[in-house]
Nucleic acid binder design. Structure first.
Length: 438
RNA sequence: GUGCUUGUAGCUCAAUCGGUUAGAGCGCCGCACUGUGGCUGCGGAGGUUGCGGGUUCGAUCCCCGUCAGGCACCCCA
């Protein structure tokens, strides 16, 4: 009988966990740099928490079951409802804007593919209580800085940004009614893909004229900056007028430019994302080659907290998963080498030296150093080889001849030099050598 | 959940038209090497060819099912 992890679930051997920890550490460093405070919540929640807003169809995607107390429960598929509840409970007492982040493990019951499992970790950053465009810029900048922190440059990824409010204004200018807008949105989302025909017929069924969207699909969609959007838009009177209005997205883009992050940003009106959630800015982060799925997605959801938790506060946030991000880092050679498991290997020349090895090893451990030694008698060469394999920088060799002088040998494994050191200064000696060599 | 595709050692891959005992590199363990390591050489362990069934004298190879991975759809945390 052999067992393996459930489909879509991962084992993390030390090497894998080290990589995950590397990603988490970058997430935390950057989030904290932006003044975000970490929180967490239960991985298991009442099923209602998710069906209340999204309806019963979502159950197909949930990892849900009935517990022994006959409660309908689900592993959390996303953090936002939990976040909404926690914020609602204390919103009155929290200084605005609220900047919170979490690194939850999330679960979805669906068929796995590359970059998409049944379980993953996700950096969730949310900024609550500020409706203005600088809040949007703030969270987008955070997402970009996470990527930079992990060693990725603007040649390797882009944030594509759009805005529901802008799109809405453009649709109106093009004569598309409120009822036709969702179908028009689908057309935008599917443009250039095999499913486009389906979206188009849905739009026609809603009474839309395809010609009305064409200007948006063929012209405006090409624009990747605000100024090119204005250029393209000038060809259409109504659109030009709509673009002349005040638009928060324009200010958000300008703010990112002012931060020096302009190279990472592309305006992209085809970014749609979940229709139910987002009310304003929407954005996705992609690798430049687009060989992978979106690394990160988010936007403004000003109505969601009220509908979920009862506090009527505007909010903007994003989620960034560890799976696609990890794949990208590996592809770009940005997976760091496993850190050394010990600082020092202590080696016995003869079996008679073993008690002295144990004594010295323990003293070094008490001194805060990572120490290993061979657990069975071995040739000295093999013991040094063990030290190499463990990434130790120092070897302490203990043998009868040196012992007779009250000394031990301390060897630098990298440059192969060694010096005799009095036993009673060994710990201090090793500590200073390790500190000096960083 | 639907369609297509792939599955050989821990990893990456071979194996003629369906043919006899399924191989190699890397990794792992041991020896050369009993006061000094990374190299080299030699040796060893490791396989129910994902699993089950069928066709055949004979199946890693052909057929069916199933499980798992990949791609697309659905969905987008």
């Amino acid at each position: 009988m052999t067992f393996r992890a459930l489909p879509g679930f991962r084992d993390f051997a030390p090497e894998d966990l080290a990589f995950r920890t590397h990603i988490f550490a970058a997430w935390r460093r950057v989030a904290v740099r932006y003044g975000f405070a970490e929180y967490d919540g239960p991985p298991l929640e009442p099923l209602d928490l998710y069906t209340a807003k999204s309806g019963d169809e979502i159950v197909g995607q949930l990892y849900n079951f009935t517990d022994k107390g006959d409660r309908e429960v689900s592993l959390r598929p996303e953090m936002t409802p939990t976040f909404a509840r926690m914020v609602a409970e204390r919103a009155n007492g929290l200084k605005k804007p609220i900047r919170w982040f979490a690194i939850p493990q999330l679960f979805r019951y669906e068929r796995q593919q590359r970059g998409r499992l049944r379980e993953h970790f996700q950096l969730n950053c949310d900024l609550v209580g500020e409706p203005g465009p600088l809040a949007d810029a703030e969270v987008i900048a955070l997402a970009i800085d996470v990527m930079r922190e992990l060693g990725l440059a603007h040649e390797q990824f882009r944030v594509r940004v759009s805005d529901r409010r802008l799109l809405d204004a453009l649709f109106t200018a093009l004569g598309i009614t409120a009822e036709q807008k969702p179908a028009a949105m689908q057309m935008l989302d599917k443009f250039g893909r095999s499913e486009y025909a389906k979206a188009e017929s849905a739009f026609i069924e809603a009474g839309g004229r395809v010609a009305s969207v064409e200007f948006l699909l063929k012209e405006l969609r090409q624009a990747t900056t605000w100024s090119t959007l204005l250029e393209h838009g000038a060809k259409h009177e109504g659109v030009a007028a709509a673009l002349a209005e005040e638009h928060p997205l324009r200010e958000t883009l300008a703010a990112l430019e002012a931060m020096g992050l302009g190279d990472y940003i592309e305006l992209d009106l085809s970014i749609v994302r979940g229709l139910a959630y987002y009310t304003g800015t929407v954005f996705e982060l992609f690798d430049v080659e687009r060989s992978l799925r979106a690394i990160c997605g988010g936007g403004r959801y000003d109505a969601l907290l009220a509908s979920l938790g009862g506090v009527d506060l505007p909010a903007v946030g994003f989620g960034m998963g560890d799976v696609v991000l990890g794949e990208l880092l590996k592809e770009r050679g940005l997976r760091p080498d496993a850190p050394p498991s010990v600082d020092v290997i202590v080696a016995a020349v003869t079996p008679d030296d073993m008690p002295f090895v144990l004594e010295a090893a323990h003293a070094l451990r008490d001194g805060g150093l990572g120490v290993e030694y061979a657990l069975a008698p071995q040739a000295l060469g093999k013991q040094l080889k063990l030290g190499d394999a463990r990434g130790a920088r120092l070897a302490v060799v203990i043998g009868p001849d040196d012992r007779a002088q009250g000394a031990v040998m301390v060897k630098h494994l990298a440059d192969k030099t060694q010096t005799a050191v009095p036993r009673d200064t060994l710990v201090a000696h090793c500590r200073s050598l390790l500190t000096l060599n960083g």
